[in-house]
Write a protein that binds this DNA or RNA. Sequence first.
DNA 1: CGGCATGTTGAATCTAATCAATCCACGTGG
DNA 2: CCACGTGGATTGATTAGATTCAACATGCCG
Lengths: 239, 239
Amino acid sequence: MAMLLRKLESIGTLSDVERQAIQGLPVRTQTLNARQDIVRDGDRPSHCCLILDGWACRYKLLHEGRRQILSFHIAGDVPDLQTLHLPTMDHSLATVTKATVAFIPHESLRELTVNFPSIGALLWRDTLVDAGIFREWITGLGRRSAFERIAHLFCEMYLKLQAVGLAGDFRCRMPTTQNDLADALGLTPVHVNRVLRDMRGLALITLRSSTLVIEAWDELLRVAEFDPTYLHLEKPVAA
Amino acid sequence: MAMLLRKLESIGTLSDVERQAIQGLPVRTQTLNARQDIVRDGDRPSHCCLILDGWACRYKLLHEGRRQILSFHIAGDVPDLQTLHLPTMDHSLATVTKATVAFIPHESLRELTVNFPSIGALLWRDTLVDAGIFREWITGLGRRSAFERIAHLFCEMYLKLQAVGLAGDFRCRMPTTQNDLADALGLTPVHVNRVLRDMRGLALITLRSSTLVIEAWDELLRVAEFDPTYLHLEKPVAA
DNA sequence: CGGCATGTTGAATCTAATCAATCCACGTGG
DNA sequence: CCACGTGGATTGATTAGATTCAACATGCCG
């Protein structure tokens, strides 16, 4: 549960007792291949899923195979935490890469929130941060250009990864295909490809073999019109 | 607080004691003109805002006056409930129409969630439904056509209004300008206008003087590819 | 080595944006 | 009562950003 602790402490604070209570949660761990569904639209799961390693994403499917990715998730995230109070899934959750996940029974989590209201508040807070990220994505999809959207996503993922110690020195994993990026940003894979070429041309970033290197962080922030407030990170954000 | 009760009971259930506790909340009521900010991006409010009458919306501003509306809110909604656990606003909240709102101190709401954990759970649930609506909007902005987006929004608002008794018989208020719709759906006002003309031509809806009449509900659901699951309404949805 | 997923590029097309007038409904004041 | 002002709605003409279709390259894995 180290990843969960690290994640929760990136958006709030925990006491020793609380840390121990979280570490005492019963979990069933499982490793999944890339592109496997974890829970599906319409399911009524009895567990939440904590990501220990790898990437996952939430998505919805529409007619004619159209897919919209709603969020990307990394180690420490509990992408279906909302099932604690919304029994029916209104979207699906799948792995992006090979991933290790831990399933935590709803019951245990409810118990935890009853015994430790401040952990409950922190979990609530986590779902609220999630919603804040959704709002930012809405803004991007509605009013940002393809270029700005991609730049913005790179800033976001870099900071999210950094917050749990998985990024630094302006480089991080980005194990998404151009197709995944397209489905997340409301674009076509072809157009994503062209924009990435342009970004490379401007010496903003390089993205090769699932590794993102941000060559010009300040410039990337500027073109993305990126303001990290919406991530509601507890610790000040590293420049 | 009747509207708040009605709203909460549209997504869950309350006992008599809980109803009374909610009715005992101290509030300061205020009437605002149309297009007034209630809280602004960056604020750290000490109250939540319950809408008693009229419409409000959340929005973000970008460069060059670009605006993205993130959600519409009606009587019974508490659009800034997240400030209970996310002190800093990452967007603004404003009235759409002349509106009456009630301000409830954070302190009182926190007390309420401590004394009545099941009210706390219901409020949490409300923010989760909110997030579910954000996800649906992401899907629309990313992968639906302008026509589908508008149709989808009409279905959503009709059901939301119906759930609190403000709509029926396939008609409801829709006090949004075409400009508001454009900012909500990632379109231009001009294009919204054309699509509305087309929808009228197909005898799907009429929208005049802030009143929406849905002429062909089933057909509207079909073209919008609308599935009400994401609204997580407690009561079955009226056909 | 072969096969398949992913990435890349070109050309044609299209949806929706942009720019620019004009129209209409409504409220106000002379 | 009517002229005027204003905000919103409507229409036309043009443009731009992104899509679509298609072909080809690359790289990884069995």
